[in-house]
Design a protein around this nucleic acid. Structure first.
Ligand SMILES: [Mn+2]
Ligand SMILES: [Mn+2]
Ligand SMILES: [Zn+2]
Ligand SMILES: [Zn+2]
Lengths: 141, 141
DNA sequence: AATAGAAATGAGAATCTTGATCATCGAGCC
DNA sequence: GGCTCGATGATCAAGATTCTCATTTCTATT
């Protein structure tokens, strides 16, 4: 992510914005709540307010730099917008988030919408289950 | 919906619970926010608190009598649990909610989860678009 | 029908997440 | 360097939902 992306979006290049982008880029999980970002900022010694984090993320979303999703928690999660659209699988136990894209599902969604007389503009799809990660607390030993 | 359903769930048969069930049963849209139910109670002269509405709906959800869904508004919506699972299409303009069930999508979801090593337990799918209802404010004339 | 015990209710406070206000600060431009 | 306007931080505010607790209401039992 470059400072030019900020300028392109009509946003000044400021320290809070750069740090937040940096955290989103270097995140392992890639899907972070505003508060998680805020805590990382604190941990790295940056004195940036939580209100600024929310404000910046909302601006990034409007600029198409990040997208916001709701994964059955109270807080929205944010991720850097890379290539294309994808949907999510979330582990009920460890909270791990994986991404997928399935052309068949995408096509059927359009077809279903057409049958109902809707012209589909967007959709939200999240699968919930138990993952097979060795670190997942619920993995059968 | 019978009082026996309440008893079966270990819930006392009380006036607030009966009235709320009644409102859910007679609703045209079938998908109501807690506040919409609360307003209907007020309109029908019942002095039932909003906290009770939320409490009762949460209990009904736990008992499997209603299900709660999040449709990209701030408030959750509740619907009476009838036969089986279904997903939703929501009109961005008029807020109309339609239901659908697509076996192909359901199957692909299971397959995608399997590929990722997840055993899928649940999912949330909502399509957003513009409907073709003659009352929809955005319908092309 | 009266009664006791448990559960449910109502009113309001509390919580959680997110956005708004406003005085101060700093990035971009001359 | 200095100007101007957008950005920030601190605080407050709003909306949705839950919690607390005193009071009421079911329900089972006498
Ligand atoms: Mn993602
Ligand atoms: Mn439904
Ligand atoms: Zn897991
Ligand atoms: Zn419509």
């Amino acid at each position: 992510m470059e400072t030019s992306d900020l300028k392109k979006a009509g946003l000044k290049v400021t320290l809070p914005r750069m740090k937040i982008l940096e955290i989103l880029e270097n995140s392992e999980t890639r899907h972070l709540t505003a508060e998680a970002i805020y805590r990382e900022l604190l941990d790295s010694g940056e004195e940036i307010g939580l209100a600024t984090v929310y404000r910046v993320l909302t601006q990034f979303e409007a600029a198409g730099l990040v997208c916001r999703l709701h994964l059955e928690g109270n807080q929205a999660v944010f991720e850097l917008e890379r290539g294309g659209h994808h949907d999510h699988i979330v582990c009920n136990q460890c909270g791990r988030v994986e991404e997928f894209f399935d052309e068949t599902i995408e096509n059927r969604q359009r077809e279903v919408a057409r049958q109902h007389g809707f012209s589909i503009k967007d959709h939200a799809l999240v699968l919930y289950g138990d993952c097979s990660d060795s670190a997942c607390p619920h993995r059968p030993v």
